[in-house]
């Protein structure tokens, strides 16, 4: 009989432990999600904080992203004599990949760390215990509401990010060129198909879910006082960002297998 600790390096064991714990936490989320009582008011409040409060940052990033992408791509396309393809290239890049992923990363930083720190601080100051003593299921009230809110709000933020990114790209194209808005938008959407949009939207739901779950898991498992709160917030961002890339890779592979990438 041999011990598993002897075979698996400690880091790998800790990674597997963490993955298992997040999987159990996710299982509990789904159990609590469908059990009454439903915390609609708290969920709406979280949607406001997660969606509305993140909007300025996400839109500012999308604006800069769209403009920079256009300005950087233009000289290359000009050298190939393909300047007229600029709107299509930018729109496809933004809608398929850049806007969803950058929005998710911004949210992983802002929302993931916020949830991790807030729940972590509630844990170490016994607020979660106080909630339980008050007859409130903290998983339903704190976790389910936040995860549902991130799952619903991040796709909306990504769609707005798409729109602002394309508009900023039009402004960027007109710094050195001269193209009307109607021509730009017609060209931009010439090669954007429905099959580009729904995998992109689908993956933003998964990004939102992952950011919510990781933020809540890290917060609810916070330890060691205020130091632990900082660690929870930090690792929530790191793990959520990594999850965003892993989900992105998986969704791209799946959409490719199903022939959705043109």
């Amino acid at each position: 009989m041999f011990k598993i600790e002897l075979i698996l390096p400690r880091v790998l064991k800790s990674f597997l432990d963490e993955t298992g714990a997040i999987a159990i936490f996710t299982g509990r989320f789904f159990r609590e999600l469908f059990r009454p009582r439903f915390e609609f008011n708290e969920m709406l409040r979280q949607c406001y904080f997660i969606g509305v409060k993140s909007l300025p940052l996400v839109l500012a990033t999308a604006f800069i992203m769209g403009m920079v992408l256009t300005i950087q791509s233009r000289p290359t396309l000009v050298s190939f004599g393909a300047e007229s393809r600029l709107p299509q290239m930018v729109a496809v890049s933004l809608i398929r990949e850049i806007a969803p992923v950058i929005t998710a990363l911004i949210c992983a930083g802002k929302i993931g760390s916020g949830i991790g720190a807030e729940l972590g601080s509630m844990k170490v100051t016994e607020q979660i215990d106080a909630m339980e003593v008050s007859g409130t299921n903290p998983y339903k009230y704190l976790v389910v509401t936040r995860v549902v809110a991130t799952t619903l709000m991040i796709p909306l933020l990504a769609l707005m990010s798409d729109a602002v990114g394309v508009w900023a790209s039009y402004l960027g194209a007109n710094i050195k060129g001269d193209m009307s808005w109607s021509l730009y938008i017609t060209r931009a959407f010439e090669y954007v198909f429905f099959a580009d949009i729904y995998p992109a939207v689908f993956k933003t739901f998964l990004f939102g879910f992952a950011i919510g779950i990781v933020g809540c898991y890290k917060g609810m498992n916070s330890q060691k006082g205020t130091e632990g709160v900082g660690q929870s917030a930090n690792s929530a961002v790191v793990v959520a960002s990594l999850m965003v890339f892993i989900i992105d890779l998986l969704v791209v592979q799946i959409t490719d297998v199903f022939g959705m990438i043109n």
Partner: peptide, 8 residues
């Protein structure tokens, strides 16, 4: 609670 546990 020792830490009061008031909701911030």
């Amino acid at each position: 609670f020792q830490s009061n546990a008031l909701y911030d």
